[in-house]
Amino acid sequence: MVIKNIYRRFIVITLFIVLFLFNSIVVGAFKELVFDEAGLFSSEERVSLETEANDLSEAYNMDIVITTTNDTGGKSSMEYADDYFDYNGFGQGPDYDGILFLIDMDNREAFISTSGLGIRYLTDQRIEGVLDEVFDSGLGDGDYYGASQGFLRKTRQYLEAGIPSNQYSADEKEPNRITIFDMLIGLVGGTATGGIFYGSTKSSYKLRNPGNPFSYRNNSIVNVVPGEDRLIDSIVTHRIIPRPPKGGGSSGGGRSTTHRSSSGRTHGGGGRKF
């Protein structure tokens, strides 16, 4: 009886463990990637988006997240999207590869935040391309499901196309505050320009020897026989002009502008009001 009891317990525990493991595997394979906090999607739409986002995430090993909100808590769309991505633990690998699509009903803005490899895939130009697709798919008309589908469709297309060969990342300039260094530059620059003015004015008031501006042309008589100059020699030489090697190239279109989010991580991205 006791042994039977122990046996049963063992089975229950094993079952629990198996269930738990299985469950975790399921969760690992099917991650929640759509967060409809503004309630813009029906449950069928949500499932459909979730499936597609998961499919894309698995194929490219990055988190493709779709989120909506009615209240950003005073944040801009960019801050909200970046923070949502960072603080909810999205991003795969050491660089937190991923792309987040935010429909911000508070600021009425669609925003794409990229991270890690996502920054490299979605250059500034491509983000504009995705946003074009999102707006063409009916964001302005309230078709949020269509817009999200548009996002996934265009993103997939770009991911399939790979990272553009001329892609590069450039940090967006942060707004600055006056630092002691700025003060120092100001002081040095002010003293320098003021000093140059002071010095040059002072020296221009000084007496300089102007030389003797005598005009010999007005005070001379020239009586010289004008003679024909005789040609005594004429030589022609030649050489082959070396051709300069062709070189150079063009750049442009490959820029990914990045900025730093509140967590200190680097994001790319861009948005558009609707």
């Binding site: 003679g227 005789r230 022609v236 030489t237 050489r239 082959i240 002009i241």
Partner: peptide, 17 residues
């Protein structure tokens, strides 16, 4: 081809200044 022609002249000036 690049050609260079050098012409030399004899200059004589005589008179009073």
């Amino acid at each position: 081809m690049e050609y260079t022609e050098t012409k030399k002249y004899e200059i004589v000036r005589q008179g009073e200044l």
